[in-house]
Design a protein around this nucleic acid. Structure first.
Length: 974
RNA sequence: GCCCAGGUGGCGGAACGGUAGACGCGAUAGACUCAAAAUCUAUUGAUGGCAACAUCAUGAGAGUUCAAGUCUCUCCCUGGGCACCA
């Protein structure tokens, strides 16, 4: 018997597939198309580790299965290499990227090839190839033409180490995503893409995508839509107005001051009025020196300066309110100014506490008593009431009243009478209802609560504004109750844990308890308005519109998403295809594309805000026109960011060699969307948002016919090192796939990576565990060898006559069941990306096959038929294409196994005649019984009740109920 | 702080509300071997018992249900996204 020599087999078949070009994809077919795509690798120069191929293996499994299931599959691969990481690596190693990238491509391709992927290499793309980036530049020209690319001089994120401007997406925690340096804000000329024009569509169309929830959620967060109002606060005695943005126009009556961002343009205009200008100027300077990180790091301590001599008018009630500047208000969001409502905004609350600014409640929570709701047709009475929570600090218990009729447990509650303030009312009620005299008011528990209920004893509906207070006993001295009070209720002391909604009759109990616990009186939810003039009693939602209208504001939508800073002051990128004629921008003509990135000796970034390309006069200066009209224009020297090429590369695979168009219309229509896209979740708010933006733009200009590029997306979980850290040279924990392939074979590696755990979860690499996958393949090989060498045993043995027929039949039949169950499971699991359970199911099947072949079994009675084994090879082949191809070939097949038809499972064979079910007594499993599938319920129950074990459990007890779930379980309740 | 995933043996992980721990690694014992490796066979959640079996176990606590790892609520922890976004 030949041993399993993975090197020989894998080498042989990889050559054969290549020679026969079996994975070439045609651009039209009778078959349904299926476009499955990997996020193409980025060649920074760093080596490959075992984590990288995980996603590629998965798409390979899927594409192989889909092909066998009759689809015209496109599974292409290419390379991305422009941008910062590749250039930084080149600088570090002092090799020109233009030289090193092609070498990396070759090396990388080799590493992919030994894993046996089914890529159609005739479609390979490379973003640094002028034939490719011609079209990247073409898209830029179109964006420019449509007004979606523009020059800006706004301050942007600048990485002092990479010496380039960065997009918001390239900044993580205030640091450069590449090198970890803290970014600065630097005003400079830059190219920007108007992605914000697409914000709404990018947000809305997420709904149509079959993407992981977490990625959709990230994008939603990143786009950050909020709907609110823009309202103007006039400056007293001046024509100027402060425009604020707020989502809570309903709280405007509680706006007790206004805050401007320190960068706000109005501050300079008001210079004359500001009597403390020196202080103000100092503060603004201080803020400027802080980076964004520092500004947010000092989280809880807000700072600001009052603009003395300036007052704003609250347009809702015409009150004069102070104006502050503070760096907790951002210039870049909204209007750079806010109306501060400390009672209903945490930040304003904190600021107001620190600087002693007035806090005014204008929105209060609503509770409608669900146990005792208002009755229709009854009169409604309004009351201001108090609720007193009273604790005895000595015992830790709380005072409640237990009323006799109706039987309620309540805190001390009562109406506020006449001109009483709420504390006086509370103390009076406490004395009247409990007799206690000496209490300390610890605090008022926030603003009032609006509650609605039916007051049964009075036969009327009540609306109450309930002010809650927290008292502690100073001592236990108390008078006895007046007889008429004692008749109504008893006083009781209970533990805190017993204060529950079940026991207490207050529908607002949750709020009371929350306020008792947190010591935070800032109510930020929606509710009902008070202290708001004619808007009192209105709900927040309604009031937002009405008040905005009332104060002459307008409803607007804002996004956190910023326009995409698209230029880099670096060498290694696509040149931005425009000329500068003085201040005028002259786009390069389409026919003159591509603008080729010149080869240079020195490509160190300059740090001046210009790219190193600016140092090549022969390239920068371009003569335009002829004769007298000729003039010299200057080329744009900034280049495009890393993300440009990857924003559209998936379209180029459809038509990689076209030099007339980005993609041929017919081919684009045929391939349509990417059906399935697999890659890392780290691209959620970069690549995946940029690509969607460009795709939508290309749709708008008629280049593509679909609204979204990637129909279904799946993220790959990382593979981390054995030490639990990310694989990195720094930690010396990198495992190289080449080594694993050498020792165990590509099929083993593929199988292992699919078996490691749920595909989308992070998995820890464990070289010890690979042996399991290898052993599995060894078993497959062993069975295969036996079958190829044994005399043909065909399925006719099922009809053998003789004494052992019945027995054989039952054994074989159950093997058939297992085989078909496995086919079903593997087919479904691949579809749902549950590769680990698919592999496990095949392991079970192989163990069973092996048991049937074991010598002490007599061999003959249960051997596996050639046909059955071939079906198994077919379902294994997407995972382990080489070994299955070899065995397939040895079994006499001439065509590649990947050209064969995916086996179908037979539902009839999956149904088992005899099944084992559990019998429970009171939900605990006490026995197992064998029943036949079509047995009647009564019969099953009878068997269950007569089971020896069961009898001991139900003896001397009465059976209340018997539940039978067909084919699953019997539960006897006694 | 807000939003999204998760928390199951020594480890990776299985489990349409229906027998928790499939499958794999590791470990223990045995077979083969001069020996080792490889391979094969058996055992392997914990506790008690010779055993049949029993009790306890899915981050903690409550609840719904004939039945909860799975559903509901509260809390704790881990990972990820956003973050003075008004």
């Amino acid at each position: 018997m030949k041993t399993y020599d993975h090197k020989k087999i894998e080498n042989k078949w990889q050559k054969d597939w290549d020679k026969k070009r079996i994975y070439r994809t045609l651009d039209s077919s009778q078959k349904p198309k299926y476009y499955v795509l990997d996020m193409f690798p980025y060649l920074s120069g760093e080596g490959l580790h075992v984590g990288h191929p995980k996603g590629y293996i998965a798409t390979d499994v899927i594409s192989r299965m889909k092909r066998m299931q009759g689809a015209n599959v496109m599974h292409p691969m290419g390379f991305d290499a422009f941008g910062l990481p590749a250039e930084n690596y080149a600088l570090k190693t002092k090799t020109n990227p233009a030289v090193s990238i092609p070498k990396n491509v070759i090396r990388f391709k080799k590493q992919l090839e030994i894993l046996g992927f089914d890529y159609d290499w005739s479609r390979e793309v490379n973003t640094t190839d002028p034939k490719f980036y011609k079209w990247t530049q073409w898209i830029f020209l179109k964006l420019l033409e449509k007004g979606l690319a523009y020059e800006s001089y706004e301050p942007i994120n600048w990485c002092p180490s990479c010496k380039t401007g960065l997009a918001n997406e390239d900044v993580e925690d205030g640091k450069c995503e590449r090198c970890g340096t803290v970014v600065e804000q630097k005003p400079m000329r830059q190219w920007v893409l108007r992605i914000t024009d697409y914000a709404e569509r990018l947000l809305k169309d997420l709904d149509s995508l079959d993407w992981p929830l977490s990625i959709k959620e990230s994008q939603k967060n990143w786009i950050g839509k909020s709907e609110g109002s823009e309202i103007e606060f006039p400056v007293k005695n001046l024509k100027d107005k402060i425009k604020v943005f707020t989502t809570r126009a309903d709280t405007i009556f509680g706006a007790t001051y206004v805050v401007l961002a320190p960068e706000h343009e109005l501050i300079n205009k008001l210079k004359k009025q500001i009597s403390n200008w020196g202080e103000v100027e100092k503060y603004i300077k201080l803020v400027k020196t802080k980076t964004n990180i520092e500004r947010t790091a000092e989280e809880k301590t807000k700072t600001g300066v009052l603009l003395k001599g300036v007052k704003a008018i609250n347009p809702a009630n015409n009150e004069e309110i102070p104006v502050w500047i503070a760096d907790y208000v951002l210039a870049s969001y909204g209007t750079g100014a806010v109306m501060a409502v400390p009672a209903h905004d945490e930040r304003d609350f904190e600021f107001a506490k620190k600087y002693n600014l007035p806090i005014k409640d204008v929105v209060i929570p609503i509770r409608i008593d669900e146990k005792n709701p208002p009755q229709p047709g009854k009169e409604t009475v309004f009351r201001n009431i108090i609720l007193a929570v009273i604790k005895n600090p000595k015992t830790g218990k709380y005072l409640v009243l237990e009323t006799k009729k109706p039987r309620w447990t309540t805190f001390v509650i009562g109406g506020i009478e006449g001109n009483e303030d709420s504390e006086t009312a509370a103390r009076r009620e406490i004395y009247e209802e409990t007799g206690y005299k000496n209490l300390k008011l610890v605090r008022i528990l926030g603003g009032p609560i609006h509650s609605e209920f039916y007051a049964g004893h009075k036969g009327e509906n009540r609306i109450a504004h309930n002010t809650c207070m927290y008292f502690e006993l100073e001592n236990e001295e108390h008078d006895s109750l007046a007889p008429e009070e004692a008749e109504k209720h008893e006083v009781a002391w209970i533990d805190f844990k017993d204060i529950t909604r079940d026991r207490m009759s207050h529908s607002e109990l949750d709020i009371v308890l929350a306020r008792l616990n947190t010591n935070n009186d800032c109510f930020t939810d929606d509710g009902i308005l008070i202290n708001s003039g004619k808007f009192n009693e209105m709900t927040s939602k309604e009031a937002r519109k009405k008040i905005t209208e009332f104060v002459g504001g307008k409803m607007v939508t804002k996004y956190k998403l910023r326009d995409w800073v698209f230029s880099r002051q670096r060498y290694w990128g696509e040149p931005i295809p425009v000329l500068h004629d003085g201040d005028k921008i002259v786009p390069i003509k389409e026919k003159d594309l591509p603008v080729i990135l010149p080869r240079v000796k020195s490509y160190e970034p300059t740090g001046t805000g210009e790219s190193p390309l600016a140092n090549i006069p022969s390239w920068v200066n371009v003569k335009v026109g002829k004769g007298k009209n000729a003039k010299i224009m200057k080329r744009e020297t900034n280049t495009m960011p890393q993300w440009a090429g990857s924003s559209w590369y998936y379209l180029r695979y459809m038509d990689p060699k076209n030099d007339k168009a980005l993609v041929d219309k017919k081919k684009e229509k045929y391939w349509n969307q990417v059906d399935f896209y697999v890659g890392g979740a780290e691209h959620a708010t970069r690549h995946l948002i940029y690509a969607r933006f460009w795709h939508k733009f290309l749709y708008d200009i008629g280049v593509v016919s679909t609204l979204e590029p990637f129909k279904k997306l799946q993220s790959v979980g990382l593979i981390i090192g054995e030490d639990g850290r990310k694989m990195s040279k720094r930690f010396g924990n990198i495992v190289n796939p080449d080594d694993i392939v050498k020792t165990y074979g590509a099929d083993t590696l593929r199988l292992y990576e699919m078996f490691m755990g749920p595909f989308d979860q992070t998995a820890v690499w464990n070289t010890d565990s690979i042996i399991g996958s290898r052993r599995f393949l060894e078993k497959v090989w062993k069975i295969g060898m036996k079958i190829t060498t044994q005399k043909q045993i065909n399925s006719s043995r099922f009809t053998l006559k003789g004494s052992d027929t019945t027995k054989n039949l039952s054994v074989s039949a159950s093997f058939q069941t297992l085989l078909h169950k496995t086919i079903k499971k593997v087919s479904e699991d691949i579809e749902s990306m549950s590769f680990n359970t698919a592999v496990s199911a095949m392991m079970v099947l192989v163990n069973e096959m092996l048991a049937r072949q074991s010598p002490d079994d007599g061999g003959e009675k249960s051997e596996i038929s050639k046909n059955d084994f071939k079906m198994f090879l077919q379902i294994l082949s997407p995972f382990a294409p080489h070994i299955t191809e070899e065995l397939w070939n040895l079994l006499g097949e001439r065509q590649s196994i990947n050209k064969s038809t995916w086996p179908k499972w037979d539902e009839k064979k999956i149904i088992e005649e005899e099944i084992k079910i559990a019998v429970q007594v009171n939900g605990k499993v006490r026995a197992e019984i064998m029943i036949s599938r079509d047995m009647q319920e009564d019969e099953v129950k009878k068997i269950a009740l007569n089971n020896k074990n069961i009898i001991t459990w139900i003896e001397n007890k009465t059976t209340k109920r018997i539940i039978y779930v067909p084919g699953r379980i019997v539960n006897i309740v006694v």
